[in-house]
């Protein structure tokens, strides 16, 4: 295909991606170097029937003037990145100097908002992803063994947790684990503890979010592995049987190696999706005990009357760096594949 035709075909799509994905990333990078103007205040003396009082007020005129001169706000360089809301170098140094040992240092570091969010995001990504793969694989094995007649309905019901809007799925579970909901009440009965609440303790909140993550994504890996199971060569399985391989050995040495490319695929997709975990935290109202990087950005943008654009942008840039680090192995693999092909 000549270059011109190629360009004509792809231009609309490329333009959309450039304007609404590439430019915003640049805009975020630029925004992260600025902070909003400090409030200009004036002291106003108001005199009433009960004497005079001095008030400080925001000088809106001067603020508008400043805003016109530099609409992005005040230049702050990399200051936003290193302040205590983000990488917090000063706080880290202080904690390092004042903590007697590793565990106390780690504990105080995990109280800093950025590191707290990073810890949860990484924990969610690297705990949920393997669980999803293992769980989905076993569902696929089990569903593959049931009579073909009921496979359709089983797949239909299995798809539901994944298809349903993440926020809505989280809400449905959230209402059930409420102390007055069916699961919450049952757990209280089982553990014989009327005070038991899955929302109160940080550890339980994390577990609930992990369970939600697995529940939401298991259908995806199940479907992919189930499709893969249909293509496992029967001859190899039969020869393995003749050689005396047990059922487990057949799964381990024939089926699994055959599915390995799919495992990589599911792992890649899950890493990308789990790293941006966000909706479940809103749905489970879990922000007090568990925040993710995406949630930090969201709450900065939602902050009261004045959104903290600079702070949100800095967290965004750090998140993007995280995504790129996460993707590097995949990009290298794709690059090698392409070079082999051409």
């Amino acid at each position: 295909m000549p270059h011109r035709t190629f360009l004509a075909f792809i231009l609309p799509s490329l333009a959309a991606m450039f304007i609404f994905i590439a430019l915003p990333i640049l805009s975020v990078a630029y925004q992260s170097l600025f902070v909003s103007h400090p409030r200009v205040t004036v002291e106003v003396e108001t005199c009433g029937p009960f004497g005079c009082s001095v008030e400080t007020r925001v000088d809106t005129e001067a603020m508008a003037e400043l805003q016109r001169e530099s609409p992005m706000g005040q230049f702050n360089g990399l200051g936003t990145y290193t302040n205590s809301g983000h990488l917090a170098f000063d706080d880290l140094a202080m904690i390092w100097a004042s903590s007697p040992d590793w565990t106390t240092a780690a504990k105080s570091i995990l109280n800093l908002p950025f590191y707290k969010a990073l810890a949860f995001t990484l924990a969610f990504t690297f705990i949920v992803t393997p669980l999803v793969i293992v769980f989905g694989f076993f569902i696929a094995l089990a569903v593959n063994a049931i009579p073909p007649l009921i496979k359709g309905p089983v797949i239909f019901l299995s798809l539901l947790p994944m298809i349903v809007t993440p926020l809505i799925g989280a809400l449905v579970l959230f209402w059930m684990i409420d102390a007055r909901g069916v699961i919450g009440a049952t757990l209280q009965l089982v553990f014989n503890d009327p005070q038991l609440s899955l929302k109160a303790s940080p550890a339980l909140t994390w577990v609930v979010l992990f369970v939600y993550g697995v529940w939401h994504s298991a259908p995806f890996s199940f479907i992919v592995f189930y499709a893969g199971l249909q293509t496992v060569p029967k001859d190899t399985l039969e020869s393995a049987m003749i050689d005396g391989a047990s059922r487990w050995q057949r799964v381990r040495y024939v089926v699994l190696p055959h599915l390995m490319p799919l495992v990589t695929f599911v792992a890649l997709m899950q890493l990308m999706d789990n790293f941006r975990v966000f909706e479940p935290i809103v749905g489970f109202s879990a922000a007090a005990n568990a925040t993710s990087l995406s949630y930090l950005i969201y709450s900065d943008l939602r902050a009261g009357d004045a959104p903290l654009f600079g702070s949100a942008a800095a967290t965004s840039m750090l998140t993007i760096i995280g995504v790129v680090i996460l993707l590097t192995p995949v990009l290298i693999r794709n690059w090698r594949n392409f070079n082999r092909k051409t």
Partner: peptide, 11 residues
């Protein structure tokens, strides 16, 4: 792979 909320903060 970009988290959507990072893009939103740019919009």
């Amino acid at each position: 792979a970009m988290p959507h909320v990072t893009l939103v903060s740019g919009y």
